[in-house]
Simulated assay, not measured.
Amino acid sequence: MERLPPLNAIKAFEVAARAGSFTLAATELGVSSAAVSQQVRNLETWFGKQLFVRSGNRIALTDAGHAIYPQTARALGDIAAIGRRMLEGGLRTRLVVSVPFSLAELWLAPRLAVLLDAFPQMAIDVRVEDDPVDVVRQNIDLRISYGDYHYPALRMVRLVHDDVLPVCAPDFWQRYGDGASSLAEVHESLFIHTNWGPNYASHPTWADWFTASGGNRSPDPSHGRRVGLSSLAIASARLGLGIALGQRVMARADLEAGRLIALSSVSVRLGQPYCAFMPSAKAERADIAELVALLSKTAPLAWEPRAPQDRI
């Protein structure tokens, strides 16, 4: 059998690298920070490589530390999964899915309904939370995130690279839009703006959409309606509160049912794709593989743009 590095030292290294601090790692492990530091030194001696740069109470991974961290995190996650599976007697009774707020109702929930047709006895735990989350420690089976960079130690599958297009309720357009020959003539107060929050800068705005359409208008968010979630922008448009830049995957059901109409076929792509992350040991599980397949499906929408169509 090949020589294995000391497992306690591997655990101390993984927690310290994830926490960015020997002190925080000590708190998680229930030992002293000196004990964590000693375990890391033991591992550095075993590898013959320095894994952290130490500067007072601060630590940072070296190139060697970055090289081994993803594999150590995956390996410890796999070991934890084996332990849970054995303790559960080989029977899995619950699927734990973690998802951002905007995706939970309009995108994830309909696909979970399809999944339950295939696995009717499955118990599902949906956790709605922002990145980052500790997938391994919280025993999360599948994390859905905006962007492909959050969890380098986990298996990743790109699900969909969504886009946005202008949508509103049919009655709203009849009341407020019929007199306009283009979206460029719509009053600024009728636009719905989505505020993604301080952590995001790659989401398209109304100014981006007008540029993509060949125009140069830039509606002022302070003169319109502003919401804090993409799903809330679509709900607001459905309720006749204005015209939203609706995400295609979230607006699909409303568009196909006629609760929303698309005012143009011009769309703008989001800056990042939506991705699924999971521990490697869970990636081949039937329920998880089925859900990932459902989330990856992006069949064309059965709709046609309504007036004013592609005129800006």
Rank of each mutant, 00 (worst) to 15 (best):
residue 13 F to K: 13
residue 65 G to R: 01
residue 199 N to I: 01
residue 93 T to N: 15
residue 195 N to I: 02
residue 277 F to M: 07
residue 46 W to R: 13
residue 97 V to P: 11
residue 168 C to N: 03
residue 69 Y to L: 10
residue 107 W to L: 15
residue 39 Q to L: 10
residue 54 R to I: 09
residue 112 L to V: 08
residue 20 G to Y: 02
residue 260 L to T: 09
residue 8 N to T: 07
residue 3 R to I: 10
residue 63 D to M: 00
residue 233 A to C: 08
residue 42 N to I: 06
residue 106 L to K: 14
residue 20 G to W: 01
residue 58 R to N: 06
residue 147 G to D: 00
residue 173 W to C: 01
residue 135 V to F: 08
residue 262 A to Q: 09
residue 5 P to M: 12
residue 75 A to V: 04
residue 33 S to D: 13
residue 141 D to M: 00
residue 46 W to V: 11
residue 152 P to L: 04
residue 27 T to G: 11
residue 136 V to A: 14
residue 289 A to G: 07
residue 194 T to R: 07
residue 35 A to Q: 10
residue 282 K to Y: 06
residue 80 A to C: 00
residue 138 Q to K: 15
residue 70 P to L: 01
residue 41 R to P: 04
residue 273 P to Q: 06
residue 64 A to S: 08
residue 71 Q to D: 06
residue 227 V to C: 06
residue 266 V to Q: 12
residue 80 A to L: 09
residue 148 D to C: 02
residue 272 Q to C: 06
residue 74 R to F: 01
residue 233 A to V: 08
residue 308 P to M: 02
residue 18 R to W: 02
residue 116 L to G: 02
residue 157 V to A: 05
residue 20 G to S: 01
residue 27 T to S: 14
residue 12 A to N: 13
residue 72 T to P: 00
residue 38 Q to K: 14
residue 98 S to N: 13
residue 172 F to W: 11
residue 130 D to N: 10
residue 70 P to W: 05
residue 285 R to E: 15
residue 60 A to L: 01
residue 217 R to Y: 10
residue 266 V to W: 11
residue 280 S to L: 12
residue 29 L to C: 07
residue 23 T to V: 15
residue 144 I to G: 14
residue 229 L to S: 00
residue 201 A to C: 07
